[in-house]
Simulated assay, not measured.
Amino acid sequence: MARVYLEHVWKKFGTVVAVKDLTLEVKDGEFFVLLGPSGCGKTTTLRMIAGLEDVTEGTIYIGDRVVNDVHPKDRDIAMVFQNYALYPHMSVFDNISFGLKLRGLPKEEIKARVDEVAGWLGLKELLNRRPRELSGGQRQRVALARALVRRPQVFLMDEPLSNLDAKLRTQARGELLRLHKDFPTTTIYVTHDQVEAMTLGDRVAVMMEGTLQQVDSPQMLYLYPANQFVAGFVGTPPMNFLTMDIVTEEGQMYLKHNGLKVPVTADMAVGLKDYPKNKVLMGIRPQDVHLADEARMIENSGWVLHCISDVAERLGTETYVHFTLDDFELVGRVSAVRTVSMGMEYDIYMDMTGAHLFDLDTGVRVCSGTAPEKMETRLGLKAEPQLRTAEQSEE
């Protein structure tokens, strides 16, 4: 096992900057995920660690060794590719053992290692088959076996599950988690799929346009995104965003947009106390927008709005409804057993303890509805259904 450290790493293709001044540490034995949309630089970063791309500037360490000029085969890493990269003319056994044969290991040791890994991944009955005789899930396991059998310091995985259907992806994620638990080798995993990132990663690094946006645990990425991009990229459905004016009336601070006026929470008020601007971008997840009669309402921490339902997305255990109010739309979550009629009026409740405020110019998070040290309390809140409606506030 080994720590991987990137220090001020750049990658340029002519005038195009693919990776910009990236400093990143992957801890020994950690399952680390690089997450971001296509073209954000995550695969280029992985290929630089593997030695398949040269570093334009900066330094890459594997363990205590600088590997910028070390050949890929001498870096003691194993890589699993998106397309599996299996040799079609070789059997499963030969595909798995190919790297060991190149290293000149004795036949007895090669057979013992292949049998061991094939047993872990349920491939013993497939060792004499060719790749064309395997399903996508079986090919993926062969590619994993070929990496595992080498016992490297670092595993590098480039979207290895993207070619599988939804059921197989779920199964494969479970296999990867079990394997990492049994063999905690340092693993760097690239994906654009936030579900994979959130379920697999000990920590996740979010990238955009070659720049690192945030590194944190999956839970903290979701609960406390560093900026608007992370907030919008992590979470399904995406976060609702709305530009708000900051106003104070009779000692109470509000966020206001046309006819909508929402009170800030106590933690938001602290965060906005010295904020120099009078406008802010409010973000609130659909999971914090409910039908009022289904909501756990918290006094002075939420708001009831009168909206019209537009579109419903039924996902089995829950339903997400698009509500419209004046010139904006909010997506909210309702119970799957609840029937929501399109075009009808409903009262919805926004739980501001889960909201975030972002700077309109930089996108950086200014404050949240609940301070991090209070989040555990918020998740376990039990409150009486007391709140003010918009009509009562105007009085």
Rank of each mutant, 00 (worst) to 15 (best):
S217R: 12
D326S: 13
K42P: 09
A336H: 14
R178P: 10
D74S: 03
L260S: 04
G58I: 07
A231F: 06
D267V: 02
V234T: 02
H8G: 14
N300Y: 03
V304M: 04
E209M: 07
K12M: 03
K11P: 03
L34K: 02
E159I: 05
H290E: 07
S91F: 02
R141S: 13
R203K: 14
I188H: 10
L102I: 10
T370V: 10
M375N: 11
E30P: 15
K73D: 10
N83F: 08
L134M: 13
F328P: 05
N68C: 07
V33L: 07
E116T: 11
S309K: 07
Y84V: 13
V195R: 06
D361S: 14
P225E: 09
R203L: 04
Q138M: 04
A266P: 02
P218V: 01
M352T: 05
G343S: 14
R141Y: 08
Q140S: 13
L179R: 15
G119F: 04
A2I: 02
T324Q: 12
R314A: 12
L179I: 15
T170L: 11
R150K: 15
A371D: 12
A312V: 15
A205T: 08
V195C: 01
E250Q: 09
G380K: 08
K42T: 09
M48I: 01
D64I: 05
M342R: 15
K107W: 00
S97C: 07
G232K: 07
F93C: 07
P286C: 07
V17G: 03
G251M: 00
F98Y: 15
K167R: 12
F183I: 14
Q138T: 06
G122K: 06
L127S: 00
M90I: 00
D245F: 01
H89Q: 15
V280Q: 01
T319M: 13
L123W: 07
E329V: 09
V321I: 15
D347R: 13
Y222K: 08
L121T: 11
N163R: 11
P72K: 10
I246Y: 03
A112Q: 14
D76E: 08
R285F: 02
L6A: 07
V17W: 00
V19M: 08
M79H: 10
G63L: 02
L126P: 14
E133V: 11
E125L: 04
G58M: 09
L123H: 06
N300V: 00
E30W: 00
V331C: 15
L212I: 04
T353M: 11
M1S: 12
H306R: 14
G119R: 07
P263G: 06
L272R: 03
S341L: 04
H290F: 05
F13P: 00
R65W: 04
V264R: 04
Q392Y: 02
L305T: 02
K27T: 04
V4S: 07
Q82P: 12
K273G: 04
Y320E: 10
A231T: 09
D21E: 13
L381W: 02
V66R: 10
D94Q: 13
K277S: 12
K277T: 06
V206P: 09
D351I: 06
R178H: 13
E196G: 11
T15Y: 01
V230G: 00
L123A: 03
G104C: 13
D74R: 01
Y320A: 01
S91L: 03
